[in-house]
Design a protein around this nucleic acid. Structure first.
Lengths: 190, 190
DNA sequence: CCTCCACTAGATTGATCGCTCTAGCGAGTA
DNA sequence: TACTCGCTAGAGCGATCAATCTAGTGGAGG
């Protein structure tokens, strides 16, 4: 079997995203991943915490790819931002409001309990920001403006996910998207 | 002893906010609340889920009071929004990045696992929006504009909390606050 | 061939989970 | 005093938790 370790990480990431870190048992992970129980502690001697941190970093890296995938083919920055939020809203609705941010739940859960995992989450957020900034500077904004807009965009998206998942509505995502678009337009026209 | 039930709810709400729903055990709650174990199931026959839902609604109602407390004494809407984010940032920093939103962690955790608790979270968010809207219409905005700005404000705050807690920095809160202020100013000057 | 080792496989551990159970306390009524 | 009843008090339930343990498998190197 090729990639037991990878399969465990991917399955963990999926489960963590839907139900969080604490609510997901190691047994549930191996069952869903169709992996033997013992393999967990062979591949992840640090136990559940190490597995959690790796799952966060892996799905974080995967989502970072959305930046080039969405922003680079777009005709302009504003269209890209709009597509970014529209895509998130569509995906959330399509998955029955299950698949929002892959790490937000975990980030809130563990940031007071596990420094290892908190750092993994912080690194992922910082990598998303770093991946987003050049797409904004390329549109003529300076580094400071670009960072502020990217951080604002990610914050708006994450918060809208929270409301959207609880209320089963993509209203918050639409609003957050349009307000981010307005912020970008304002910076471009200054 | 006056208010064992209330003490249990308040303690639960605090623990849920810091570490989430699944990671908080009933035993931990009774220990922290200095309450007898049996009292939990006397006061909350629905078990942990009922306790969780009540904790969400109670702390939600408590936070709803921030709307009048911050917006009504402010000289104008923009100052109020600024104070709203500044207060959140200060409180988060003062508590060592522990006390962010009282229900966001729970909302993300349970919205795919417990319909009872998901509804409690959704009701709380909707009540916050309902409490915020009149403060925005009082400044001359129409209902539709007001709701969009309030939903955007809460989304921005929630998302900034996620980033702030993970990165141990209030940068995201400052940015989210200023972008919300800009959105309000734009609506007022239109 | 044999050895070695990465990996699979799952039984088993002690601790902890949410929850149920019975017992009894103490204030109120008669 | 006698009885009720809201609540306290915690022992104990079966289930499940993360993690450890030993045993065994299969392919590569010599």
């Amino acid at each position: 079997m090729a990639g037991t370790r990878e399969r465990i990480i991917e399955t963990s990431a999926e489960l963590f995203r839907r139900q969080g870190y604490a609510a997901t048992g190691v047994k549930q992970i191996v069952t869903a991943a169709q992996a033997p129980f013992g393999s967990i502690y062979h591949h992840f001697p640090g136990g559940k915490e190490q597995l959690g941190a790796e799952a966060v970093r892996t799905s974080g890296a995967l989502y970072e790819l959305l930046m080039p995938a969405i922003f680079d083919p777009a005709p302009d920055l504003v269209s890209a931002v709009r597509a970014f939020f529209a895509g998130a809203a569509e995906h959330l609705r399509e998955t029955g409001y299950e698949d929002a941010c892959p790490i937000a739940t975990v980030a809130l859960e563990v940031s007071s309990r596990s420094e290892t995992m908190r750092l993994a989450c912080a690194d992922v957020f910082e990598s998303w920001i770093a991946a987003g900034v050049p797409r904004f500077t390329a549109a003529g904004l300076d580094d400071h403006q670009a960072r502020e807009l990217v951080v604002g965009m990610i914050s708006a998206l994450e918060g809208a996910f929270v409301l959207a998942r609880a209320t089963r509505s993509i209203e918050a995502l639409h609003i957050a998207g349009e307000q981010t678009v307005a912020a970008v337009e304002r910076a471009l026209n200054a």
